[in-house]
Design a protein around this nucleic acid. Structure first.
Lengths: 336, 336
DNA sequence: CTGTTAGCGCCTTCAG
DNA sequence: CTGAAGGCGCTAACAG
């Protein structure tokens, strides 16, 4: 794997390396004739500039780090695709790391990326992350950063989030319009701002329609199928059964459905249920799951652009982008 | 974001840069005293070696390129996690690119990675890829490469594949034992070796149990939900309905189920169906889908190790690893 | 044991 | 318009 360098071409043509460099970069101070000659033989010899040398000189790696909680569900991969579209076009590469929802791993990843001298960071917090001091320090030191999806209000860097409050409200309103009166909320992790916003949306809808609820109706679940299942089963065992469920995401909704089914409940006849962050398979489960769908591609798109602005040293004024989605109503929440 | 260099430390301590370098690399020709002194102030000053400079000098990037057809389904992400575990421990980073099942994009990705001077490549072919000349050329030029999952028999580099033949046989045998006599195979893309092997497994089982089948029973479908649905619908419209279906993967199985359901067929009573490459959601669909599960993590693990052997210039003797999985029987194929 | 020097491949003054 | 020289940060060969 011997690589051709600028030197090889220079020797071949009996010119200096700087001439070759000038030709490759098409600077003004070179004659068209020599430039074309150089470019021609460069092509013939199969020359490609050594990006590592370029990076060393420019003090820039053209790599940005992405830290996400997981990439097993299709949610984050979709976002990453949105980012890649934007950043690859600008010559950047993505280094993708997962925290596995673990704060410690998240920090390790960030440190590793920093040591690798990435030009910027795109981060979605793990469900554990509460201490964000390091991020603010890093941002103030001048590291270009954007947070997305899982953010924390105290973070100073730009953020791309979903309008969780608004769409949670719509989701619950939808359940109410289907005739549900006794609605519970499977609430993810209460210390995540995303979960808190969804709780607010739930509360607003319940209040608006004068439906009763208390703290027991807002149940912390986590984000996984089995967590939804366990919580639901526990409720049913206590003899409690709501007639409407607003789940913080699709996996917990699926879990709840499993528990409900095995307790002999019918969906949507006995219980209406709606999830969040439409997963690819929400339409193939039984019954097809209603859900709030998020514009994953757009999240990636905007996060990437906010990062680019920082990379290009432009000032970002309003630094939180809040996106809208849509309600996808399927069988699981539809009566009559 | 000013970075501390070896020079800064040298100046601070009034020693030469090489002394600092020696201390950092803990070489034999340095006194313990100066080494400790250097390491101490290095830490105090927050020094981190510049990986780019190191790469330039070592002529090695410690980055390996991964090219996969897509990462929307959880299959490839799982494999990538397996790779990351192995390679990160050895100091390598992954540059992940998607071909979107398109040959042209695949080639572009490989070229881009090559220009980026990755130390090696981990590749899973797009469904379109038939011309693999470039890969063989690259491999013979000395580029460390491993192919996985989607491979082509003509490729000379090491491969990690699944024993598709054997497990297809088991899948079809299972259907036969459930009493199916009229079994069709939704066959993916016939030019992929993976699909051909699955077809062979199907044929072997049918032959062994003396069940009739012809070319019309082996239907090319692609890999997506709607492709399975369309093919199945077309069959049903022609008045053809098998009593057993072996699908080349889970999405096509799901598609077929959709078509069957809307034609009023019951599963598994009227039609038994089994998929392949268990997806995360195969157990939440209706009915829960039987499937052949592949050891995704292991695929990544072995591919990474085969690459490491090449990166470390060890000779790889037997260069195709064939993995086994297991049959996961759920409702969709279980009678009585 | 430590310092000096050259070089990895490229870009960029500075001379000519 | 072109060449020579220095430097990006680090390592390694060579002196001392």
């Amino acid at each position: 794997m011997k690589h051709i360098t600028i030197k090889d071409i220079a020797r071949e043509l009996n010119v200096s390396v700087s001439t070759v460099s000038r030709a490759m970069n098409d600077t003004f101070d070179i004659s068209a004739k020599t430039r074309d000659k150089v470019l021609k033989t460069a092509k013939e010899m199969g020359y490609h500039p050594n990006p590592v040398a370029k990076r060393l000189h420019q003090q820039k790696t053209f790599q940005v780090g992405v830290v996400i909680p997981e990439f097993i569900n299709d949610f984050f991969p979709q976002i990453i695709m949105g980012m890649q579209n934007v950043l690859q076009a600008e010559g950047y590469q993505l280094l993708i790391m997962q925290s596995n929802e673990c704060f410690e791993t998240e920090m390790e990843n960030v440190l590793k990326l920093e040591e690798n001298m990435v030009d910027g960071l795109l981060i979605s917090l793990s469900r554990e992350t509460q201490n964000i001091d390091y991020y603010n320090k890093l941002y103030e030191k001048g590291m270009p950063m954007v947070f997305f999806n899982r953010v924390n209000e105290m973070i100073k860097a730009p953020k791309v989030i979903f309008n969780d409050f608004k769409w949670s409200y719509f989701a619950v309103e939808h359940l109410i319009k289907q005739g549900c009166k006794n609605i519970i909320h499977l609430a993810g992790y209460k210390h995540l701002s995303l979960s808190r916003e969804r709780i607010r949306g739930y509360e607003k809808a319940m209040n608006k329609f004068h439906l009763p609820y208390d703290d027991d109706c807002i149940i912390e679940t986590g984000f996984m199928i089995d967590e939804g299942e366990i919580v639901m089963k526990r409720l049913l065992d206590k003899g409690i059964c709501p007639d409407g469920i607003f789940a913080t995401n699709d996996p917990t909704a699926i879990g709840a459905i499993k528990a409900l089914k095995s307790a002999g409940k019918r969906i949507p006849e006995d219980v209406c249920i709606i999830g969040f962050s439409e997963a690819m398979w929400s339409e193939v489960v039984d019954p097809p799951l209603s859900s709030v769908s998020q514009p994953t591609n757009l999240i990636g798109y905007h996060a990437a652009h906010l990062l680019l602005e920082q990379l290009n040293e432009k000032q970002t004024e309003d630094n939180t982008i809040k996106l809208d989605g849509k309600l996808v109503v399927r069988t699981s929440s539809q009566r009559g």
